[in-house]
Amino acid sequence: MDKKNALRAGALAAGTTLMMLLMSSPALALTRDDGDDPGTGLSVVETLGLYVLAPIALFVVITGLIMVLDRSHPDHRVTGPNTKAKAAKQKAGAKA
């Protein structure tokens, strides 16, 4: 029964892929439409800066802001296994 379902799924995937390939026409990409006004292309450095460095920089800035502005209570933070238990033992020892 599993073989039949796998064959059915494979046929469906192959059929869908074939239909997508037949429906798309890359040759039409060369024909300009009315009102089409493409700009100048990006250089390699501009492309890398826009699609690689900018997202990484944005991620670093957001992460830094979260770390700097974190005002949660230190006892509620989980930094590793058994960390909270050790902190509780140390507090109990300090109070006694």
Rank of each mutant, 00 (worst) to 15 (best):
T47H: 03
T83V: 01
L65Q: 01
D2W: 08
H73E: 01
V52W: 13
G93I: 05
V68T: 04
S43L: 07
G39D: 04
A27N: 01
P81V: 11
M23W: 03
M1N: 03
N5T: 13
T16E: 12
K95Y: 03
A94W: 02
S72V: 06
I62H: 10
K91Q: 14
G64F: 10
A85I: 14
G64R: 03
V78R: 12
M23Q: 06
A94M: 02
L50M: 04
R77M: 10
K91C: 06
M20S: 03
L53I: 15
D2G: 13
A9W: 07
Y51P: 07
S25F: 05
A87I: 04
L18R: 01
V68C: 07
S72R: 03
S72G: 06
V52F: 14
G10C: 01
D2N: 12
A27W: 00
H76Q: 09
M1F: 01
V52M: 13
L53S: 12
A87W: 02
L28D: 00
D70L: 09
L21T: 09
T40L: 08
T83H: 06
D75Q: 02
A57W: 13
I56D: 11
L65R: 12
T83S: 00
I66F: 08
K91A: 15
L69F: 13
M67P: 01
L65M: 14
I56F: 15
S72P: 02
E46M: 07
L21K: 08
L58C: 10
K86T: 09
A87H: 05
K86I: 11
L28T: 05
A27S: 06
G10L: 02
D75M: 10
K4P: 11
Y51L: 03
K4E: 15
D2R: 10
S25C: 00
A11Y: 01
A96T: 15
F59M: 13
S25H: 07
V60L: 14
P74E: 08
A92D: 14
H76W: 09
A92Y: 13
A57C: 13
M20T: 06
L50H: 02
V78K: 12
L22W: 04
R32Y: 14
T63F: 11
D2H: 05
T17E: 00
L30I: 02
A57E: 12
R71D: 00
M19W: 04
A6L: 15
L65W: 12
T83A: 09
I62D: 04
M20W: 04
A9T: 09
A87N: 01
V78M: 13
I62T: 10
D70I: 11
L58P: 04
L42F: 02
L28H: 00
A87Q: 04
I62Y: 11
G10D: 02
L18G: 07
T83I: 05
G15N: 04
D2C: 06
L18I: 07
T83C: 00
V68N: 00
M19E: 06
A11G: 10
L22R: 08
N5F: 13
L58G: 12
L12T: 05
G41H: 14
M19N: 05
A88E: 12
L12N: 01
L50A: 05
L21A: 11
A88M: 11
M20F: 01
K89F: 04
V68K: 04
P81T: 00
D33Q: 13
E46V: 08
A6Q: 15
V60M: 14
E46Q: 05
H76M: 01
G80F: 10
Q90R: 14
K86P: 04
L30E: 08
P74I: 02
T17H: 08
G35H: 05
P26T: 09
A11R: 02
